[in-house]
Lab assay of single mutants.
Amino acid sequence: LKTAGVNTTDKEMEVLHLRNVSFEDAGEYTCLAGNSIGLSHHSAWLTVLEALEERPAVMTSPLYLEIIIYCTGAFLISCMVGSVIVYKMKSGTKKSDFHSQMAVHKLAKSIPLRRQVTVSADSSASMNSGVLLVRPSRLSSSGTPMLAGVSEYELPEDPRWELPRDRLVLGKPLGEGCFGQVVLAEAIGLDKDKPNRVTKVAVKMLKSDATEKDLSDLISEMEMMKMIGKHKNIINLLGACTQDGPLYVIVEYASKGNLREYLQARRPPGLEYCYNPSHNPEEQLSSKDLVSCAYQVARGMEYLASKKCIHRDLAARNVLVTEDNVMKIADFGLARDIHHIDYYKKTTNGRLPVKWMAPEALFDRIYTHQSDVWSFGVLLWEIFTLGGSPYPGVPVEELFKLLKEGHRMDKPSNCTNELYMMMRDCWHAVPSQRPTFKQLVEDLDRIVALTSNQEYLDLSMPLDQYSPSFPDTRSSTCSSGEDSVFSHEPLPEEPCLPRHPAQLANGGLKRR
Rank of each mutant, 00 (worst) to 15 (best):
D166A: 15
R167K: 10
L168R: 05
V169F: 15
V169A: 10
K172E: 13
L174R: 03
G180A: 07
G180E: 03
Q181K: 04
V182G: 02
A185G: 09
E186D: 09
E186K: 05
A187V: 13
I188N: 13
G189R: 03
D191Y: 05
K192T: 15
D193V: 09
K194E: 07
N196H: 06
N196D: 06
N196T: 10
R197G: 06
K200R: 10
A202V: 03
K207E: 01
D209V: 07
D209G: 05
T211A: 05
L215V: 02
L215S: 03
S216T: 10
L218Q: 02
S220A: 14
M222T: 04
E223G: 04
M224K: 01
M224V: 15
I228F: 13
K230R: 14
K230Q: 12
H231P: 03
K232M: 14
I235T: 08
I235S: 10
N236H: 15
N236Y: 15
L237R: 15
D244G: 13
D244V: 10
G245A: 13
L247V: 07
Y248S: 07
I250V: 07
V251L: 15
E252D: 03
Y253H: 09
S255A: 15
S255T: 08
K256M: 08
K256Q: 05
L259P: 01
R260W: 00
E261G: 04
Y262F: 04
Y262D: 01
L263M: 06
L263Q: 00
L263P: 01
Y273N: 04
C274Y: 07
P277A: 09
S278N: 08
P281R: 06
E282Q: 08
Q284R: 06
L285I: 05
K288T: 05
D289N: 11
A294S: 14
Y295N: 12
Q296P: 00
V297L: 05
G300R: 01
L304P: 01
L304Q: 01
A305S: 15
S306A: 09
C309F: 15
I310M: 00
D313A: 01
A316G: 01
R317G: 00
N318D: 02
V319F: 01
L320V: 10
E323D: 14
E323Q: 13
D324G: 09
V326M: 08
K328Q: 13
I329T: 02
A330S: 13
G333V: 03
D337E: 09
I338L: 13
H340Y: 01
D342N: 15
T347I: 14
P353S: 02
W356L: 02
W356R: 01
A358E: 03
A358V: 01
I366V: 04
Y367F: 06
Q370P: 05
D372E: 03
V373M: 13
S375P: 05
F384L: 12
T385A: 04
L386Q: 11
G388A: 08
P390T: 03
P392L: 01
P392R: 00
G393R: 02
E397A: 13
K404R: 11
E405Q: 06
H407N: 05
D410E: 09
K411N: 04
N417K: 10
E418G: 06
M423L: 00
M423K: 00
D425E: 04
C426W: 00
C426G: 00
H428D: 04
P431L: 00
S432A: 05
P435R: 04
F437S: 00
Q439P: 00
L440R: 00
V441A: 05
L444M: 07
D445V: 12
I447M: 08
A449D: 09
A449P: 09
L450F: 04
S452C: 09
L459R: 12
S460A: 11
L463R: 10
Y466D: 07
S467F: 04
P468L: 03
S475G: 13
T477R: 09
S480P: 15
G481W: 13
E482G: 12
D483N: 15
S484C: 14
